[in-house]
Write a protein that binds this DNA or RNA. Structure first.
Length: 116
DNA sequence: TACAAGCAATAGT
DNA sequence: ACTATTGCTTGTA
């Protein structure tokens, strides 16, 4: 939508998207865990791949949060209304958040590593 | 093909 | 809070 040229789906991105499909409704993963699942040691590369996710929302990029349980980014932004939307989507799937915007302590069992 | 710069992060200091 | 490091993409030549 926001890009002029379609983004090339490289083998790396393909792996990211396929692994993400293994995260069920009601669960979330992190950039680092998702990376480890596909043998990538750079969480930033994961974020960059998701940034241009051409299969949204079929590939649930909103289920990827940061290791410190904060929300990370969404749709190219790290704060603002886009992040609020990401939070609402997750709340609709059963997650709850603390006032500081992190996943509530009682909900952290929902953070999983996708099995590949 | 080669090189530089950027990115939705994270660990260490 | 700040810096270094990370791996992959994208742009420029």
């Amino acid at each position: 939508m926001s890009r002029k040229h379609p983004i090339k789906v490289t083998p790396f991105r393909r792996k990211v998207y396929l692994a993400l499909l293994k995260v069920p409704v009601g669960y979330v993963t992190t950039y680092a865990l998702l990376g480890k699942a596909i043998g990538c040691r750079s969480p930033r590369a994961i974020g960059q791949a998701l940034r241009g996710n051409p299969f949204a929302p079929r590939v649930p990029c909103h289920r990827v949060i940061a290791t410190d349980f904060s929300l990370g980014g969404f749709s190219g932004h790290r704060s603002g209304p886009q992040i609020a939307r990401k939070r609402r989507m997750l709340e609709a799937e059963g997650l709850r958040f603390d006032a500081d915007g992190c996943v509530a302590l009682s909900e952290r069992w929902r953070v999983i590593a996708p099995r590949v």
